[in-house]
Every structure is written in C-alpha cells, then in structure tokens.
C-alpha cells in the first residue's frame, strides 16, 4: 500500500451546536483543513481525524455525550471508531 495517507473528513452543520465541536477538532487536529461552505463545515485531514469528548466539554463548559455529534453530523468518510471518550475516523 502507498505511503500517501488518504483523506478522511467530517462534515457538520454550520450552527451554534457544531461550533464547539469544530473548535475541538481544530485544537486536537492541528493538521486538519477546515472549510466553511454554504450551510456546512467540512473538516478534512490526512489519514485520521478525532473528536475528543474532553476538549468539546472544555469548549462548551458542560458535560457532552459523544453521541450528541449525531445532531449536527452531515457526512463523513473513513472507518468510524466511537466510544464514550472520542469519535475517530481513519483509513486502515
């Protein structure tokens, strides 16, 4: 397999509920490319992208259930690995 890492992406709605998630992704994935498109925000990265519960909670100032991500999710690419602390996308 090639060394080039394929892009994974997470697209969320461009709204208030998604903002702390976008900010958490920016903090935890410094390599991620964040694009604002009409109505939605596309966050892409080479090979892997993670949303950490703790970082979102710091941004939002309350407890946050990783599954709340479902409320703003638009699309994704990559294999999903989710547990109570993180939501992660990756290609093998």
């Amino acid at each position: 397999m090639s060394n080039k890492k394929n892009t994974v992406f997470l697209i969320v709605q461009d709204n208030e509920d998604a903002r702390p998630i976008i900010e958490a992704v920016e903090r935890d994935n410094p390599e991620a490319n964040i694009q604002y498109q009409p109505g939605m925000v596309r966050m892409e990265a080479a090979g892997r992208l993670i949303v950490n519960r703790e970082t979102v909670e710091e941004e939002i100032g309350r407890e946050w259930d990783v599954q709340e991500l479902h409320l703003v999710l638009v699309s994704l690419a990559g294999n999903v690995d989710e547990d109570e602390d993180k939501f992660e996308l990756s290609w093998h």
Partner: peptide, 22 residues
C-alpha cells in the same frame, strides 16, 4: 444539493436535508 439550497435561499430544504443527512 443541500449546500445548493442554502446558496439559493431555500432554508426549508437545507434544514430537512441536513436533518436527514445526519
């Protein structure tokens, strides 16, 4: 298409579209 709806002022379609998309 939903991004297109947002681009054309169709907030109703954007909303059901993104709601379905989740």
């Amino acid at each position: 298409f939903m991004s297109g709806a947002a681009y054309n002022g169709d907030m109703a379609t954007v909303t059901f579209g993104f709601s379905a998309q989740s």
